[in-house]
């Protein structure tokens, strides 16, 4: 452990590599978490099938790549297809559980997750798949630091998507309706907002975002029908750590966790990466609980 810290001191250049890796990894997680936070905030459904929607997007890119479509171009059709899929799922399942208790919506989305996993397994087989973007590496500091172009592109796309989302929520009529519904669905309904349409829109946008994340993940890491769970868990960790309804917080938390994960992997070993993240989440929750307690006391 101290040896590894020493490396960072003797050759600070590796800090750059760790931060670059962390930020680019986090950008993709950020997308998934952003969609989750949106759905959570607006419909209060905790979507356990988040990661499986990501895998669907990945397989979309893989299938299109087999037909000669470059995976970057696949972003558009895959997002569109996933948007439509999200709409169907909303009409078929989510709509029916939105008013019910937490447990029912958890069960419903868990069931959806299993259905997507098994369908992907039947359709594409259990192979670990990757999609090659064909992009090269960017070498910095005379080859000391190497990062793939696709990671940088993915990072750029994530930033673009996030900006587009913020603008959409702030400026467009639908965005305003989504925000209004998130604040108070009943009031929004009274004022003439079609909340059912808003819910459908929110879930579909989330599916489209997941689809886009899936395309990027297929190019950067690997996809497999059963690997969605990792992304679901990570998205939940980020959203919980950021705090509900805090969309800018999601971005900051995702990037912070991404970099922290790289450092813990480097310094104490890859086996402790996850433990660090979950440990940090625990600390944040305890800290938040304590500050809440203090507030309550001051109220009394």
């Amino acid at each position: 452990m101290w040896d590894n810290l020493q490396i960072l001191g003797v050759a600070p250049i590796f800090n750059v590599q760790l931060i670059l890796n962390g930020v680019t990894v986090a950008a993709v997680f950020c997308l998934v978490a952003y969609g989750l936070a949106l759905v959570w905030g607006v419909t209060s459904v905790k979507n356990l099938s988040q990661g499986d929607l990501v895998m669907m997007g990945g397989y979309g890119a893989w299938e299109l790549a087999r037909h000669g479509v470059h995976p970057i171009l696949a972003l558009i059709p895959v997002s569109a297809i996933m948007f439509a899929f999200g709409w169907i799922i909303y009409k078929l399942i989510i709509r029916r559980v939105i008013q019910l208790d937490l447990f029912t919506s958890l069960l419903a989305t868990f069931g959806l997750a299993i259905t997507i996993q098994q369908s992907l397994n039947l359709a594409f087989g259990p192979d670990v798949r990757t999609v090659e973007s064909g992009f090269g590496q960017i070498k910095l500091f005379g080859g000391m630091i190497e990062i793939t172009q696709i990671k940088v592109i993915a990072f750029g796309l994530c930033v673009l998507l996030a900006i587009a989302m913020v603008l959409f929520l702030k400026k467009s009529r639908m965005g305003q309706a989504i925000r209004a519904t998130a604040q108070d669905p009943r009031a929004a309904r009274v004022l003439g907002v079609d909340t059912d349409l808003v819910y459908a829109m929110t879930f579909s946008i989330n599916a489209a975002i997941c689809g886009a994340a899936g395309v990027l993940i297929a190019m950067i890491w690997v996809i497999q029908p059963f690997y969605g769970i990792a992304y679901s868990v990570r998205a939940f960790v980020i959203v919980t750590a950021a705090g509900l309804g805090n969309l800018p917080g999601v971005i900051v938390t995702a990037l912070g966790l991404g970099v922290l994960e790289q450092y813990s992997g480097f310094v104490i070993g890859a086996q402790f990466q996850q433990a660090t993240i979950v440990g940090l989440l625990l600390a944040i929750l305890i800290w938040r609980q304590m500050t809440l307690l203090r507030q309550r006391k001051s109220l009394q």
Binding site: R234, E261, G265
Partner: peptide, 22 residues
């Protein structure tokens, strides 16, 4: 370097950075 891979994630870039350094 004696790292265990993170169980659920397909990313070992932290380990790779260490290998590159050593």
């Amino acid at each position: 370097v004696d790292d265990k891979m993170p169980r659920d994630l397909s990313d070992i870039s932290a380990t790779m950075t260490k290998i590159k350094a050593l």
